[in-house]
Write a protein that binds this DNA or RNA. Structure first.
Length: 896
RNA sequence: GCCCGCUUGGCUCAGUGGUAGAGCACUCGCUUCACACGCGAGGGGUCAAUGGUUCGAAUCCAUUAGCGGGCACCA
């Protein structure tokens, strides 16, 4: 056993175990043979097939894996379904960029060849992602891996489209939309990002037709004036009362346009008069509809001016046109002024091009019915439940203001819209071309060239991946899923849409809970992003500190934003090493300890204190960790495990049993001590496993235990793995407050002696006598029964215990809780001055607390109104503190 | 403009009504036969500010300030 290295090398464990877990089928729900097993299911938020995984993915995957492994060990039939998203725009952009290197455009290839090329690219990039997910240790069921463009999922997409159409929720029409001139496609409102921008506000004068007056309008986009079809003022604005209904002669075009009144106009802003360009501004478009204004298209899909913009402008880029319009106004003396102005501008989320609002024929979904389904579910049943709760408001507020969803995209990569047109332009929406032909009564049909928004298919993910629209066994078993884990930035884009579509098409919510993770920020508190190039690659962190350590660091982040800190991971790397070495110690001393299943069986009341204590601590840990995981409190779970293992198990339990465990001669005592040590270690490894899968499996496999007997009942026929061992559940009978309090006294005693040794500069190797006085029988018994351990841990030459402390004057002393006293005789070594100072420090600390407590108890309000239990507690504490103060004071007096 | 979150030791963060916590960093001492990625002992915080509720507030409420995020508007 001595061949176990002193330092844990994560690489080795990370290489071997995953492949075995996967090939043994441990990740698949079928491994669970209990027909009555409860079900836990979760679908992965499908990463974009374009990207590589970033820290945010690693964070989410850690949370999901912890939950899945935990539930699996608890005997649940678990499914964590993996997959990827085809990510329409991003992917098309990436592949187009590749083509550009070959001096080709997608148009050179043509649609079919281009899409083929994307599939090739997907195979490569997707392979990278699945590799990364495996590296994370994610216990996903690869046999159920899905891709949003799989045949099955595509079928679900068409089915949903057809049903929405047939029920009248879909329409195709010309509306004002967000157009990206670079990507040449429409974007939904959610795919547009607003960025602040400093620019100019131009004040343009429009003369009235009769030339009696002029109106001044303010605009940030002068070039759109070429498409103006009205000037609007507020109906109650007295300045313009007389002008409403008059006609303005639009400069540069000579067109006559009316002055109209509309409530939308803010009289306070600009001049109070607004130019209206229905074809190139969303608000103006709406106003145009209200007032029946004509639409004059002056900017085309390439963001260049059209013929209708006039011969001087035709063909100009929108920004060039802006300059020219300003120039002309200046020449005509119609440019009143130009102000510097801060405003925000809409950009394409993907390529950052400034979006051009255009009128275009697109497919839209009316969201009212689905929105109401989601809102009702929230109102009536509180589903889904958000953790943290604060996101519920964000979710419902957004739903309440939901507008129609633009779902067509002018791309090639995606689900082609299942709509066909005949030669007259009539539309036939169908599940496939044959059905469309049947409906049309002709086979001379052309399919709509557009594809659907990526999020259209993502919205179906929780059920399309399980076989919908077929009522498959998987769908029946795993839907609704248990919980969705996600980052907050896709609550609208994705979460809300899944709820709406899920309710609409399956009649059930797609998940019961939504757990929203925090965000990993860089060390300056900035979001990690590709453009800022401040991201940290999880793979590099894995290489440096190990996957398990990284997972612990990520799990502790929970749902608050946290600045990334290597030091944190390093400390968990150290923790992993600590576990490794604790196990190493146990195994180095395991001979003859091939343990029975429970080394603590038998008369538990007669176990030694440290055994009763560790059982109590272990069961409390199991209780707290299970409870923390139930409420998605990963931070709490990690802290509980960390401190149990390091503080309780390593610092105290191992040290307390060390004498027995390492005894030279074999004995029944030695055997049982060894078996118990291994038993506690084994339980600890199970508790840690969901967080640290590799290390725990590596060690567990090496333990001298009967592995097969440790599996959860649901997995009895599986080849042994800690993955399928039962997750420790608390046994209330083993939680022993008396043992814990007695052990605390022992620990306190040892710590006080060590403190004296350290403060008095006693050499680590020197042994000193320790004298203890404890009037309390129970305490005295506890000390007496643990004399050997106390001597060992305090490095005492002898420990003598009596009801009264009898110690020479030249001793260092301490007063313990419970009225116990302690002295370390230091004849010839003691510096009375120093000892007085040390004691005075103790007294001061106690005195400060006593003062507070005395004041509290002197307050009749406290005694009357505070719970009796709190008052009693305060009384006990003050009594104890007073006793200790008087002991210490007497000691100091004696030194004088 | 509206909404949400954060502000706790040098740093990163827990704690959410009853004695201020952890890890890292810092100081001192240790090759104590699992571990120096370690062991032992320490120092360090008026819990952003003000006001209120309460016997009692880091914790609940209000206001303010700073930081971060979201939504809307932006002629």
């Amino acid at each position: 056993m001595t061949e176990i290295p002193k330092t844990y090398d994560p690489k080795e464990a990370e290489q071997s175990h995953y492949a075995r877990w996967e090939s043994e089928g441990y990740f698949a729900p079928e491994i669970n043979k209990d027909p009555d097993a409860p079900v836990f299911s979760i679908v992965i938020p499908p990463p974009n097939v374009t990207g590589s995984l970033h820290m945010g993915h690693a964070l989410q995957h850690t949370m999901m894996d912890v939950m899945t492994r935990h539930k699996r060990m608890c005997g649940y039939r678990t499914l964590w379904l993996p997959g990827m998203d085809h990510a329409g725009i991003s992917t098309q952009l990436v592949v187009s960029r590749e083509l550009k290197k070959e001096k080709l455009t997608r148009h050179d290839l043509g649609r079919e060849k281009f899409v083929e090329r994307v599939w090739q690219w997907k195979a490569e990039s997707g392979g990278q992602i699945t590799k990364q997910i495996r590296r994370e240790g994610a216990s996903v069921d690869w046999s159920r891996e899905r891709f949003t463009m799989d045949e099955g999922l595509s079928r679900a997409v068409r089915e949903v489209f057809v049903r929405l159409y047939e029920e009248g929720h879909l329409y195709r029409g010309a509306r004002i939309v967000n157009w990206c001139p670079t990507d040449q496609t429409v974007l939904s409102d959610l795919e547009v990002e607003k960025t602040p921008q400093s620019g100019q506000l131009y004040y343009l004068q429009y003369p009235l037709k009769d030339n009696s007056h002029h109106l001044t309008v303010a605009t940030t986009r002068p070039e759109t004036m070429l498409g103006d079809t009205a000037v609007a003022v507020h109906p109650n604005d007295e300045r313009f009362q007389s002008l409403v209904g008059q006609t303005v002669l639009l400069p540069l075009t000579g067109r006559e346009i009316p002055v109209i009144a509309d409530e939308y106009v803010d009289p306070e802003f600009g001049t109070g008069a607004v130019k209206i360009t229905p074809a190139h501004d969303a608000n103006d478009w709406e106003m145009g509809v209200r007032h029946g204004l004509p639409q004059v298209f002056v900017i085309d899909q390439n963001a260049r001016m059209t013929t209708d913009a006039g011969p001087e402008f035709e063909g100009l880029d929108r920004y060039k046109a802006r300059e020219k319009v300003i120039e002309k106004f200046q020449e005509l003396g119609l440019l009143e002024k130009v102000d510097e102005y801060e405003f925000s501008i809409s950009k394409c989320e993907r390529c950052k091009t400034v979006v051009e609002p255009l009128i275009s024929t697109q497919w839209f979904v009316r969201m009212d019915e689905m929105r109401d389904l989601a809102l009702d579910l929230k109102r009536e049943e509180g589903k889904p439940r958000f953790v943290p709760e604060s996101y519920e408001k964000v979710y419902t507020n957004w739903l309440e203001n939901l507008r129609d969803w633009t779902i067509s995209r002018q791309l090639w990569w995606g689900h082609q819209i299942p709509a066909w047109y005949d030669e007259e332009g009539n539309v036939y929406v169908a599940r496939d071309e044959a059905e469309a032909c049947a409906k049309a009564g002709t086979d001379k049909l052309t399919q709509d060239q557009d594809v659907l928004d990526t999020w259209f298919s993502s919205a179906l993910w929780p059920f399309s991946t399980l076989g919908w629209p077929e009522l498959t066994e998987d769908l029946r078993t795993f839907y609704p899923t248990t919980v969705l884990v996600t980052a907050r930035d896709i609550i609208f884009l994705w979460v809300s849409r899944m709820v709406m579509e899920g309710l609409k098409f399956t009649g059930k919510e797609p998940f019961q809970d939504v757990f929203v993770t925090g965000t990993v920020l860089d060390k300056h508190g900035q979001r990690m992003s590709k453009t800022k190039n401040n991201g940290i690659d999880p793979l590099e962190v894995f290489d440096k500190y190990g996957v398990d350590a990284t997972r612990l660091a990520l799990a502790s982040i929970g749902s608050t934003d946290t600045r990334w800190n290597d030091k944190q991971v390093e400390s968990y790397r150290n923790f992993a090493n600590k576990i490794w070495n604790a196990a190493r110690f146990c195994m180095m001393n395991a001979e003859s300890a091939e343990s029975s299943v429970n080394a603590f069986d038998g008369d538990r009341a007669n176990l030694p204190l440290h055994d009763r204590w560790i059982l109590s601590r272990l069961n409390k840990t199991a209780r707290d960790v299970n409870a923390a995981l139930e409420k998605y409190d990963f931070h709490e779970a990690v802290q509980t495990l960390y401190h149990f293992f390091w503080d309780d198990f390593c610092d105290w339990y191992i040290e307390l049993t060390k004498a027995n465990v390492t005894a030279e001669e074999p004995s029944a005592e030695r055997t049982i001590a060894r078996a118990r040590l291994i038993w506690v270690l084994e339980q600890s490894l199970r508790l840690l496993h969901p967080f640290m899968p590799y290390l725990t499996e590596e060690l567990w496999q090496r333990l001298p235990v009967k592995h097969g007997e440790l599996l959860h009942a649901a997995y009895t026929r599986a080849a042994p793995t800690i993955m399928l061992a039962g997750y420790p559940q608390p046994d209330a009978e083993l939680i022993d407050e008396r043992a814990e309090s007695e052990m605390r006294a022992v620990i306190d005693l040892v710590s006080r002696v060590r403190n004296i040794r350290s403060e008095m500069n006693i050499k680590p190797g020197d042994r000193v006598p320790v004298l203890i006085g404890a009037a309390d029988d129970r305490l005295r018994t506890a000390f007496t029964e643990n004399t050997d351990q106390i001597a060992r841990l305090a490095r005492a030459s002898a420990v003598s215990i009596g009801a009264q402390l009898e110690a020479p004057r030249a001793s260092a002393r301490a007063a313990l809780a419970g009225g116990a006293e302690l002295a370390v005789p230091l004849e010839g070594l003691i510096d009375f001055e120093q000892e007085r100072a040390r004691l005075q420090k103790d007294i001061d600390k106690l005195q400060a607390e006593a003062t507070k407590l005395t004041a509290q108890l002197a307050n009749p309000q406290f005694v009357d109104r505070a719970p009796a239990e709190k008052v009693a507690e305060a009384r006990e504490r003050i009594a104890d503190i007073t006793a200790r103060i008087s002991v210490l004071t007497e000691t100091i007096e004696a030194f004088k």
